[in-house]
């Protein structure tokens, strides 16, 4: 829990900035039978990023990385919209579910492809997934024929832009996926197995863990998360844009994972941290729009905040900077990494 203190503190600080500079930022009202307000927006627009980042967390825990999630987002959205646009009635629930099934199936197949390249062929994850990152956007444009596919389907609209019990539907999807991941990784042994593969794949294999199968499952799951995120993004604007949907989301997702305290070296991960990390990024974006940072300086502003966040997260940096003010503290070793040697 202590590990989450820094990201949580940073998120609180960002919200505090909004409390000071933006009127009505914390105001939440009921409009047309659903919740409405800036905080709801952060969850609503942050939902796809949280999903992608959760999938990415598991991949990074295995010491891998998945650069192709942005392309998978575009492909899934394009596929679903293409299918729906060919339906005789775009409001038929069966047809929309079928389209969603095809899109997610395609996403999982692409993820299995990534897993195959990494686990069986033995290509480094960054290269293996780079292939799909580049080729996937072409594939998405091939599906949409280079155009933006616009649809008008009420059931599909629910996925990313709709509300259920006054809550944005996207948040509910995220909550379900998060609960599912938390259950299978923290209540069952899967989390431990993933961490052990990330720590040392060969040693895990020798101790009886099917590392290869596990890797493929993890990459497939990451792609599934990206696929769902792609459905949300395209549903939110009722259209599929093969060229721009999910552009650079892989970088935001990796950033969210790292801010959340998961090490890129693998072997350890924090789901709660990742959710906080993704929320920090989305809050930062919303803050920029709300307080009116000029677009020319937006990237610089983001970079500054991220730099501060990363520095605050670094124990070495904290030890150096805060040493003069406090009593010199010995370099802290997280409890989980302590090794006792019994003689």
């Amino acid at each position: 829990m202590k590990r989450l203190a820094w990201p949580a503190g940073i998120l609180a600080a960002l919200l505090l900035v909004n409390l000071i500079f933006t009127d009505h930022f914390f105001q939440i009202e009921i409009k047309d039978g659903h919740l409405y307000g800036s905080l709801i927006d952060i969850f609503r627009f942050g939902a796809p990023l949280i999903l992608v980042a959760l999938g990415m967390t598991l991949v990074i825990a295995t010491k891998g990385i998945d650069l192709s999630v942005g392309s998978v987002v575009a492909i899934a959205g394009a596929m679903a919209c293409l299918q729906i646009s060919t339906l005789p009635s775009q409001d038929s629930i069966g047809g929309v579910l079928g389209a969603i099934g095809i899109a997610l199936g395609l996403a999982v197949a692409l993820g299995i492809g990534n897993g195959f390249l990494v686990a069986i062929v033995g290509i480094q994850p960054i290269i293996a997934t780079l292939i799909l990152m580049v080729a996937g956007r072409g594939l998405a444009q091939l599906i949409t024929d280079g155009q933006i596919i616009t649809i008008n389907s009420a059931p599909y609209k629910l996925v990313g832009g709709g509300y259920w019990l006054t809550l944005p539907f996207g948040i509910i999807i995220v909550a379900v996926v998060l609960a599912l991941i938390a259950f299978v990784t923290r209540r069952l042994a899967l989390g431990l197995l993933i961490e052990s593969v990330g720590g040392n794949a060969e040693a895990s294999r020798l101790s009886g863990i099917r590392a290869r199968g596990l890797l493929i499952v993890v990459y497939a799951f990451c792609a599934l998360c990206a696929g769902i995120a792609g459905l949300m993004i395209s549903s939110n604007v009722s259209s599929a844009d093969g060229n721009n949907a999910g552009l650079w989301i892989e970088l935001d997702a990796i950033l969210a994972v790292v801010i959340g305290g998961t090490s890129l070296a693998g072997g350890r991960f924090s789901l709660g941290g990742t959710v906080l990390g993704a929320l920090i990024i989305q809050t930062l974006t919303t803050t920029i729009y709300s307080i009116g940072v000029p677009p020319e300086t937006t990237l610089l502003f983001k970079a500054l905040v991220v730099t501060i966040v990363c520095l605050l997260q670094s124990p070495a940096f904290r030890a150096k900077v805060f040493r003069s003010r406090r009593k010199p503290a010995p370099p802290t070793v997280p409890a989980g990494e302590k090794v006792t040697v019994r003689t």
Partner: peptide, 13 residues
């Protein structure tokens, strides 16, 4: 997508 996100923030602020 960005147009919607930015407009949403404009409307609140």
């Amino acid at each position: 997508a960005k147009g919607k996100e930015v407009m949403d923030a404009f409307l609140k602020a």
